[in-house]
Design a protein around this nucleic acid. Structure first.
Lengths: 112, 112
DNA sequence: CTCATATATTCGCTTAAGCGATTATATGAG
DNA sequence: CTCATATAATCGCTTAAGCGAATATATGAG
């Protein structure tokens, strides 16, 4: 079966792990990801599409934004352990979350 | 952190998943793997070394044989779900287990 | 020592991944 | 319509993965 293998391939890249770590918090648009991870737009978009093809995330279009969020089926329940027992213990991923938080705050202030 | 990522990269290849599925049953030597999966010796050896470098398995030499077995630390506990909730539901991996069983039986008869 | 068996390593090749830079497309604002 | 913003897609390049075939190494048997 291909589906599981596709999901695991999607998990074998650090940028994608960093993205999943953020999406585990909440639904985000591409520009949130680029800002939080400080990566290029093309890179963020590419990896998000990769994750979508692997059926780990789903997307939702609204105006000119595309919002991505986790889309885990029953089989992928091991993802919880991966994120909470592993990623969240690592400095890089903690920093990413903090950067996301800071960025969302700035973004909201801008919109006021 | 590199270690988790190395482990995940190790999980992103079907042959290595098939090997892990077998090692989840019991400690095996390289030739058991080649026979059960019907793959070449070089291929079995290469992937086992890959898994060892990723610290998912450990090896033990005895005479001319090298025995490999699972070596999961606390962080890798999601592997249980991966194997039992996913791999073991798939025909390919079930067949591999049956082939292993058959091979071990033949092997023992030969040794009598 | 010599041979057979088990395993690891190397080589050359092919294919896939990831990347930056650029371009294309879609949407909303004015 | 025109412009700015958000996202996706393409191109060319570089590097990594995986493979089969062949060779090397280690161990036990006799």
């Amino acid at each position: 079966m291909e589906k599981l293998l596709d999901a695991l391939k999607a998990l074998s890249d650090e940028t994608r792990l960093r993205i999943l770590n953020l999406l585990y918090e909440k639904e985000l648009c591409v520009c949130d990801i680029m800002e939080a991870l400080q990566i290029s737009q093309a890179k963020a978009s590419r990896h998000l599409i990769y994750l979508k093809n692997a059926e780990l995330v789903k997307d939702r279009k609204h105006a000119q934004w595309v919002y991505y969020s986790m889309a885990l089926d029953e089989r992928m329940k091991f993802m919880d352990s991966l994120v909470y027992d592993n990623l969240r213990n690592l400095e890089l991923y903690q920093n990413d979350l903090q950067n996301l938080k800071d960025w969302l705050k700035r973004k909201n202030i801008k919109c006021d």
